[in-house]
Design a protein around this nucleic acid. Structure first.
Lengths: 97, 97
DNA sequence: CTCCTTTTGTAACTAATCTCCAATTATTAT
DNA sequence: ATAATAATTGGAGATTAGTTACAAAAGGAG
C-alpha cells in the first residue's frame, strides 16, 4: 500500500509488558512460553531485559487463537510457524542493527 | 508484498531507550524534543513511561537527516510532517487498543 | 489416582525510566 | 562583542518495569 520500512520495523522491539498488553496474555505466561521455546526474544548482548519484535508478537497472537480453538501450546506453535513462512523469511533476511 | 498487520503495528510502541538505540539519538535529547512538541509519545493512561510508535520513530529518523543537513529542529519537524502525510493518515485512522 | 502439561505466585534484585532542578553550548540578531 | 534565543546536557532522588529462581497449583489424558 505505502512503503513500510522493513528495516526499521525489524528494529522495533517491545518489552514483555507491551506484548502482554497487546495480546492480553499475562507476562508470566509469556515467560513460560519462552522458557519452553515456543517463542523467543531478540537476542542481543546489549539487552538485559527481553524484547520482542513484530514477527514474534504476531506469532503470539496467532498461537492464542489456535489455543482457544483447542490446540495444545506445542501444536499451536508449530502450526503458526508453518503459516508464517513468508513473513519469517522477510525477517530473517533483515539484520537488526 | 506480504500483508503487514497495520492494526498490530500501530499497537507496537517501544520505550525511549529503544528509540535512542534505533536512531542513535540520546534519550535526553528525545525527551527535550518531546518537551518542545516536535515529537510525541503515545498517550495512554496505562503508561507511566513513554512509548513511541512506528510513525514517530520514522519521524525521528527523518528529522535527524534534515538536521544534519542544516535545518533547524523546528523546520525539520515541519518538513517531515509534510512528507509523511500518507503514513500519518494510515496511523490516524487506526485506533490503538 | 498418576503422569505430564500448563499456568500462576512471590520474594529479592537489577535495570530502565521519570521529573525537576539547573547549567552549558550554539546560533542569530543588534 | 553583547544580548537573546535555540539546542543540548547533567545529575539526584524517586518510581516503575523487568529479572531470576524457587515452588505450588490447576488441568487434562490414560
Amino acid at each position: 500500500m505505502d512503503g513500510i520500512d522493513y528495516s526499521l520495523l525489524k528494529q522495533m522491539a517491545v518489552t514483555i509488558g507491551e506484548v502482554a498488553k497487546i495480546t492480553d496474555i499475562p507476562i508470566r505466561k509469556l515467560r513460560y512460553w519462552e522458557d519452553k521455546g515456543y517463542i523467543k526474544s531478540v537476542d542481543e548482548q546489549a539487552h538485559t531485559t527481553r524484547r520482542f519484535d513484530y514477527y514474534m508478537i504476531k506469532k503470539v497472537v496467532l498461537m492464542k487463537e489456535l489455543i482457544e480453538d483447542g490446540y495444545t501450546v506445542e501444536a499451536s506453535s508449530q502450526k503458526v510457524e508453518a503459516r508464517m513462512g513468508k513473513l519469517r523469511q522477510v525477517f530473517d533476511n533483515l539484520t537488526r542493527k
